[in-house]
């Protein structure tokens, strides 16, 4: 049984909760990035919540996903803990990757999350590989590779889908078409009208759905999952969506105007879904407000947790390169461990 499914009232409420959590998490991450508390750079998922949540609503808890550089939404949709996510963004020892990954490499393989990914188009080969393990071991899972519209132009994406299709592996490829590959419009990067048209090259189904409608995404991925589990191979699901923020935080966005952004906001996936639930009598405006408040508090708590968590000891930089540390690294690690004592407990 899935973590949540759009087929039940409880599941729909959970889907809304996760969409709201993504938005609150990313708005907050954007703020702390702007304040300089989050190092590096962050790519926010705001506006695209229906895609990650819709897709994950169609999955079982032990299914795999391989994510993109815009991965926070996939993490929350898959059920990762915002506290450990925020700690990772803050570069803390208690983050999902002990501070080694950051925003672009959040992963939790035990939860089936095979990593956000800093390389555009690198996730689909990993998803194909996870599907290969599933197939090889006759397990009941599927592997979903998320990719952006820009990644559809990458060679390794073609190779991954071709391999999965040729071997009928239990994979699903979800293309998040948010209209821009970094700063270049989708029309200037691809020759097909719909990115799902590429499915024809592999003789697999390709569908394009409204990516601002969580139900539409969930239905398409559910169908794709069923096909994958039936041994019929992968499907390409293109979800047409929109990112409200820049490619990365700080992107001045000379490539689009405010009118366009406002027009897409009229289709806001959270407004649409919450209005649907209110119309159906499953949710009152009061309950929606309570839910928002609850999530705001939860993310505030996540930030506090991240701020209070210890920074990694510098000697941690030498850990996790290999199953067993080679002498080449050990000589630096032992030196750092020896030096580490002088830092005392003040590592926050």
């Amino acid at each position: 049984m899935a973590d949540y499914t759009l087929e039940t009232e409880e599941g729909r409420r959970e889907a809304l909760r996760r969409m709201l959590t993504i938005r609150e998490f990313d708005s907050t991450a954007g703020d702390y990035f702007a304040d300089g508390e989050i190092p590096g750079f962050v790519h926010l998922y705001i506006g695209e919540e229906a895609v990650g949540v819709g897709a994950c609503a169609a999955l079982e808890p032990d299914d795999y996903i391989a994510s993109t550089h815009r991965g926070h939404g996939h993490c929350i949709a898959k059920g990762l803990d915002p506290k450990l996510m925020m700690a990772e963004l803050f570069g803390k020892q208690d983050g999902y990757c002990n501070g080694k990954g950051g925003s672009m490499h959040i992963a939790d393989v035990d939860s089936g999350m095979l990593g956000a990914n800093g390389i555009v188009g690198a996730g689909p080969p990993l998803a194909t590989g996870a599907a290969l393990s599933i197939d090889y071991d006759d397990r009941e899972q599927v592997a979903v590779g998320f990719l952006g519209d820009g990644a559809v132009a990458q060679g390794q994406v073609h190779e991954a889908i071709n391999l999965a299709a040729t071997w009928d592996l239990p994979a699903v490829f979800v293309v998040e078409n948010n209209r821009y590959g970094e700063g270049t419009p989708v029309e200037e990067q691809h020759n097909v009208d719909d990115l799902s048209d590429t499915a024809g090259a592999y003789d697999i189904p390709g569908v394009t759905v409204d990516g601002m409608d969580v139900t539409a995404v969930a239905e398409a991925v559910e169908e794709a999952r069923k096909r994958a589990r039936d041994g019929d191979g992968p499907t390409i699901v293109e979800a047409e969506t929109y990112r409200y923020r820049g490619h990365y935080e700080g992107d001045e966005q000379p490539y689009r105007d405010e009118d366009e952004i406002e027009k897409w906001k009229e289709q806001d996936p959270i407004d649409r879904f919450s209005e649907l639930l209110v119309d159906r009598g499953e949710l009152t405006e009061e309950e929606l407000k309570e839910l928002r408040d609850e999530i705001e508090a939860e993310i505030e708590e996540a930030v506090e947790y991240a701020q209070d968590a210890p920074l990694p000891d510098p000697s941690e930089a030498y850990e996790d390169m290999f199953a067993e540390m080679p002498p080449e690294i050990e000589r630096f690690a032992s030196q750092a461990r020896a030096d580490g004592g002088s830092l005392g407990g003040d590592r926050r």
Binding site: L126, G129, L132
Partner: peptide, 28 residues
Amino acid sequence: DERVRDTPISEAGFIGAATGAAATGTRP
């Protein structure tokens, strides 16, 4: 066939798949 698998001529694809498979419980 299952244990000695011919791949397409697709080095990025099958090396990537081997990577994903190794992270998910098998030993390619």
